[in-house]
Simulated assay, not measured.
Amino acid sequence: MSKWNMIINVGRCENCHNCVIANRDEHVGNDFPGYAAPAAAVGDSPIRILRRTQGSAPMVETTYLPVMCNHCDDAPCIRRAGDAIRKRDDGIVIIDPVKSRGRKDIVRSCPYGAIVWNEEQQVPQTWFFDAHLLDQGWQQPRCQQVCPTNVFEAVKLDDAAMEKKAEKEGLKVLKPNLATKPRIWYRGLERWETCFIGGSVSAECAGVVDCVQGAEVTLSQGGKRLAKATTNEFGDFAFDGFPGDGSTYRVEVSHANGRVWRDCVLSESIYLGELRLVRPGATDAPGGPDAR
């Protein structure tokens, strides 16, 4: 049977909050019996935009991550709530607005923090995929309709087809170690989960310091080369997709104007700053060829 899934394209989100606003416009003050009680005008939103800022000036990267109910196939909230939450045949999780009344404990059952408490109605609520619209024949939830950068992509496939699509396109889920079998997938999640190492290469020629284009930069660990890059017209380079687990890496730069190296420990994305090339034979520059 075909079931609903949502694919979120990480890197396309620009923090416009259209999805959040549209969700509140759809639900604040509007009662949808069987689906949800009216959402509160004041309070947490079931759709949130998380922000991660990496690096330091001038090499800074900001990533926004939309998060909401994952509509898990093995949902901890269902195990906690009993018949107050149901899983539909099409994969959508619905918190019953009547049976869940007063059940604040359901909010704490979600390991993703995707359930909010409606103080006005005394009910837990979440993003229920706008199932009330899909049941009327709509093909997209509100968040997808209003997104100007095509962050959201709702797809309805059987489980085997969805798994095949996820494998082919490199889709991932949040916190896979929880084994909750989410139906919210992320494309490009490594941008959120991994780190980069960057820097700027310069050299002094005829008394003038300038950036160096075309310098060869290698990244290694324990003597093993991991990646290679070439500096751009601003002398900048970056290696991305590495875990921030406290590992030590070595960056080595080579060019006709000289060489330089730096060691760094990667726990968060790091900008190494200016790496000034040193000509062979120089002994007074840290990180130069004779400083090893």
Rank of each mutant, 00 (worst) to 15 (best):
F239M: 01
A84G: 06
G188M: 00
Q125D: 12
G29M: 03
E268F: 06
P182E: 07
N70H: 10
D74E: 10
G241S: 06
D25W: 13
A37Q: 07
K224R: 15
L226M: 10
K172W: 02
E14S: 13
T53V: 12
G188E: 02
T180P: 00
V93E: 01
K3C: 06
R191N: 11
G223K: 11
Q122T: 06
L133Y: 07
G198D: 01
R88L: 12
G55V: 00
R187P: 01
R24Y: 08
G170Y: 01
D236I: 11
K172N: 07
S100E: 03
C13L: 10
R51Q: 13
A41H: 08
V151Q: 03
M68I: 04
K99C: 04
S267M: 05
S45W: 01
A215E: 01
E153G: 01
P66I: 10
K228A: 15
V201M: 07
E153V: 10
I106D: 02
Q122A: 14
L178V: 08
I95R: 06
F237R: 07
C211M: 12
D89I: 14
T283N: 11
L133D: 05
Q136M: 13
T230P: 06
V107L: 03
K181A: 13
G102D: 04
V253S: 00
G198N: 00
M6R: 00
Y35V: 13
C205H: 11
G223Y: 03
I8V: 11
D74V: 11
Q221N: 12
D290H: 15
C264W: 04
K99V: 07
A179M: 15
G207V: 05
V107D: 02
A40C: 05
C110L: 04
D158G: 05
G29K: 05
G273E: 00
L277R: 08
A81C: 02
A131L: 10
F152W: 08
E190F: 04
I85V: 14
H71A: 11
K175S: 14
G273N: 02
K87S: 12
T231N: 08
I8A: 06
S45I: 08
K99D: 01
D96W: 03
G241M: 02
D284L: 12
W192M: 09
A238W: 03
R225K: 12
Y271G: 07
R250A: 12
G241E: 04
Y64E: 02
E169V: 01
D96Q: 08
H255I: 06
G214V: 15
E190T: 05
F129S: 03
Q145V: 13
P76T: 10
W138K: 15
D73H: 05
N5V: 03
Q139I: 11
V10S: 05
D73E: 13
M68S: 08
P176G: 08
V107E: 04
G214E: 07
N9M: 12
R250W: 04
A282Q: 12
A206V: 08
D74S: 14
G273W: 00
E193D: 10
P124K: 11
G281V: 12
A75W: 03
D25I: 09
A57H: 08
V60A: 01
A238Q: 06
L134A: 06
A114F: 03
E216A: 15
K104P: 01
G207A: 07
C69T: 04
P148I: 07
